[in-house]
Design a protein around this nucleic acid. Structure first.
Lengths: 191, 191
DNA sequence: GTCTATAGCCCGATAGAC
DNA sequence: GTCTATCGGGCTATAGAC
């Protein structure tokens, strides 16, 4: 891992833990073991750095979701695998939420380039979930009309992000686990 | 409204918009039309000020919820009224979310006294919703076992807070409206 | 690429006059 | 209660040596 990647990795951790306004170049420098000024060589501004962190995150998410898509299981099971991934993260550390769910709280203050990336992730995630729902409808595993799919997908996204917020607030990943179980029960109830 | 209340009111607005790390005494001073130092006379530290803002918020919430409890409608309708309240807030301004949902994202960084207030609000809200669910079960409007009530209430809280996050991210209160509609559909489906 | 040094600004908080 | 002035420190960012 080269120095730029190292900085992106540490910045990601700090962003998830503390948000845009809650971390500084000094924090990164301490963790990486370099000086503040060296970070500016790789990423000229904080806005640029954070945008790069999110772009990297989004590309990782995209590849993980397409890996999920390749697994030969039904679409509700794919959603279950996505929820399990976050459940494992949150059981280890209750504040280890999705980067974009974390930054969503700061959206009104974020530089525009960063805000656009956060919105982009939300759209991509709800788009992926909408795809799962359509697949389940086609296979008669779900009885939902086509014009309800988008709203249902946004509901699923909101429940997931809200579950992360609850786990973080109570400092207990088990809240996310229970909330995601309730979510799956409700989705499967519409079958 | 005396000066202390005025400061609390403005600090609340700034906190909801920008979070704990996103606003300063200078911001409050500008909006109220006084000097920074004057704020310290009323609230010696930022931690103290924010704790006071949340305590005031929680007491207002508590009185509004007990007003709702007095209305002679069924419990699902009470939840609908709670959701409608937030829906109106978010239609006017998509970033006008619950103070504690906003601060939840910053929980790992908050001073302990503030974090405790945020957790307290979460518990109180989910407790109120659990009460509604039990009432509906007693009246045979909902078929849910007693040991599912707490998880169901936490799920409702998470969906609401996640809906606020989505409205803020997309800068569009309509997202909250749709998400809260989906939530009510799912709750009523279990009847 | 990384360093030291520093500019320029904002932060929370305090002292003391009025 | 509110003011002016200021302290000590943190912030992002830049300049320039190595």
């Amino acid at each position: 891992m080269n120095r730029a990647d190292e900085i992106l990795h540490v910045a990601h951790e700090l962003l998830v833990e503390r948000g845009y306004n809650g971390f500084s170049y000094a924090d990164i420098a301490d963790k990486v073991g370099i000086q503040k000024a060296s970070i500016h060589y790789h990423f000229p501004s904080k806005e640029n750095l954070v945008q790069s962190v999110i772009q990297r995150y989004r590309s990782i998410v995209k590849s993980k979701l397409s890996e999920l898509d390749k697994i030969p299981v039904d679409s509700v099971q794919k959603l279950r695998l996505y929820l399990n991934y976050w459940n494992e993260c949150l059981q280890n550390k209750a504040s280890d939420v999705c980067l974009c769910a974390q930054l969503a709280a700061e959206v009104p203050m974020l530089p525009e380039s960063v805000r656009i990336e956060v919105q982009g992730h939300f759209e991509e995630l709800s788009g992926w979930i909408a795809g799962l729902l359509r697949e389940a409808i086609d296979k008669r595993q779900l009885s939902l009309s086509a014009d309800q799919v988008k709203d249902e997908a946004e509901f699923v996204v909101a429940s997931i992000h809200g579950g992360m917020l609850s786990a973080r607030t109570y400092n207990n990943g088990e809240y996310f686990n229970q909330i995601s179980k309730q979510l799956l029960i409700k989705i499967e109830a519409a079958s």
